[in-house]
Structure formats: C-alpha cells, structure tokens
C-alpha cells in the first residue's frame, strides 16, 4: 500500500466510524419520527418496525387538537424566560465586567455556586413560597422559576463577553457626553449582540424544555406547557404511543430549528458554560 492509499483508507475508516456513531446517536430521534406516523395497532403489536408500516396522519390530527394550546404555552414560557434572562443578565454581566465594584468577586462566586444548586431544592421551597405570595399556576411564577436555569449562566457568559470589549469604546461614548445608561444601551448592547443571542437561545430552550418547575409550581389546569402535557398524556393513554410520539416531534421542533438557525450560538454557549467568566 502506498502512503496515499493508506491515508485514503484511514479517512474512509474514520467516516465509517463517524457514520456508525451518528446512527446510534440519532436513532432515537429517527424512531420518534417513524412512530409518529404509525397506527396505534402497529405500535401495540409485539413487533417493532424500523421503517414506517402503514403510515397514517391520524396521530398528528389528535395532537394538533389536544396539544396546540400547550405548545403555545411553552412558547410563551420560553420567550418569557429569554426576556427575563436578558433584562436581569445583560446589565449585570456588563457591570461585573466593566465596573470596579467591591462585591464582584463575591457575586461571581455566588453565580458559579448558583449553577450547582439542584432544581428540586429550589422547586420544593418555591412551591411553598409561591403558594404564600399567590404565584402558583401563573406564567410569571413559572418564568421566574425557569430563570434559575438561565440567569446565572447568562450573567457569566455575558460577563466573559463584555471583558473582550475594549474600554476605549465606552470612554469615547462618555467623552461624547453619553450617560452610563446611554453608553450601555446604545453602544455596549449592540456590540454584545452575538453573546446576547447565545444567552437568549439558551434561556428559550431552558424555558421550553423545563419540566420540574412545571410539575411543581403548576397544577396543570390553568397553565400547562408541552412537557407537562406529554407526561400527563402518557399517564392517561400510555398505550397511545403514536399520539405521544407526534407530541414529542412538536416538542423537539424548536431544538431542531435552533440547530439549523443558531448552531454557532449553541456551540459557543455550550463551551462557554465551562469557563463561565
């Protein structure tokens, strides 16, 4: 074998390895899509079919009727979480990066630790606290709770980004007579656009995918996001896998959209999570 042939064979081997691992990684998603087109009878049978077997759209009809409202709820919660994260995190990230405050070290440490706190700990207490201040079963309550996933992360990512802004930019604005707020809102935020988008994408996905707070601070009648609805539906009709899988397809649509539209923000956010600061 010549050197060229060997490297070509090696490359082929790599491609094969990559394809094999992708098959394993992506099979569950593929299975969901296939199942969403199967009839209940097929899915209840003892045989699993790897390709669609008697395709039907019935599941989607069921789901569009039953789950459309829940999808909208999740959309509101996701957008709400993204907005909350921005309102709280953008100014805070900026202040922690660019203002010489004594509390910075303490606050950044607190944010790092906050990321570690398990949600169930927060959920148990928030249930009682929300009960007390009448925030159970409400969008504001759920969004405030979902913010616990997104906000510490968002502040740290934005802080890391704002470090990279040259101080001269802000100084120039101040020399021109801009107030601190004007400097922030007209100069800093537009410059930080890509970090802001990363944070928004993550916060949206956090709010969209949340289940633990939906389970604890909602009782599923007034406000019921798609994750909770799927869980309830599965409890009610655990044999109706077709409809469950069609709901699942809808529940992962935003993730798929984000993957196509905002891939680079997701990748940078994922890795930024490890340095956070």
């Amino acid at each position: 074998m010549t050197h060229l042939q060997r490297s070509r064979a090696l490359r082929l081997l790599c491609t094969l390895g990559a394809v094999a691992s992708l098959v394993v990684v992506l099979f569950p998603v593929y299975a969901v899509v296939v199942a969403s087109f199967e009839t209940t009878l097929t899915l209840l049978g003892n045989t699993y079919y790897f390709v669609p077997h008697g395709a039907t759209l019935a599941n989607y009809q069921v789901v569009l009727q039953a789950q459309a409202g829940h999808l909208l709820t999740s959309l509101i919660v996701g957008v709400g979480t993204a907005v909350l994260a921005l309102v709280v995190a953008v100014p805070a990230g900026y202040a922690l990066a660019k203002y010489p405050l004594r509390a910075t070290v303490v606050l950044v440490s607190a944010l790092l630790v906050a990321q570690i706190v398990p949600s169930i700990v927060i959920a148990t207490s928030l249930f009682k606290v929300f009960h007390w201040i009448h925030l159970l079963n409400s969008y504001p309550g759920l969004i405030l709770a979902d913010g616990t996933y997104a906000i510490p992360f968002a502040i740290l990512v934005l802080r890391a980004f704002f470090f990279s802004l040259p101080n001269e930019v802000m100084q120039a604005a101040r020399v021109d007579g801009a107030t601190e707020w004007q400097t922030f809102s007209r100069i800093v935020v537009p410059l930080g656009r890509s970090a802001v988008i990363t944070v928004m994408v993550f916060a949206f996905l956090n709010g969209w995918g949340d289940f633990i707070f939906a389970l604890t601070v909602l009782n599923g009648t007034t406000v019921e996001p798609i994750t909770l609805a799927i869980y309830t539906y599965l409890g009610n009709f655990s044999q109706d896998w077709g409809a469950v899988m069609a709901s699942v397809v809808f529940a992962i649509v935003p993730a798929a959209v984000m993957l196509v539209v905002a891939q680079r923000y997701i990748a940078s956010g994922l890795t930024a999570g490890s340095v956070v600061g």
Binding site: L75, I197, V261, A262
Partner: peptide
C-alpha cells in the same frame, strides 16, 4: 452571520409578539 442574527432577532420578536 450578521444576516442570520437579524433574522433570528426578528423571528424571536415576532414569536413574542404573536404569543402576547
């Protein structure tokens, strides 16, 4: 990328408006 960001911004804004 700028275009993408814009599109994304606009998309999210529209989503927010629609849900409200």
């Amino acid at each position: 990328m700028n275009l993408l960001e814009k599109r994304l911004n606009r998309g999210l804004a529209a989503l927010a408006a629609a849900s409200v």
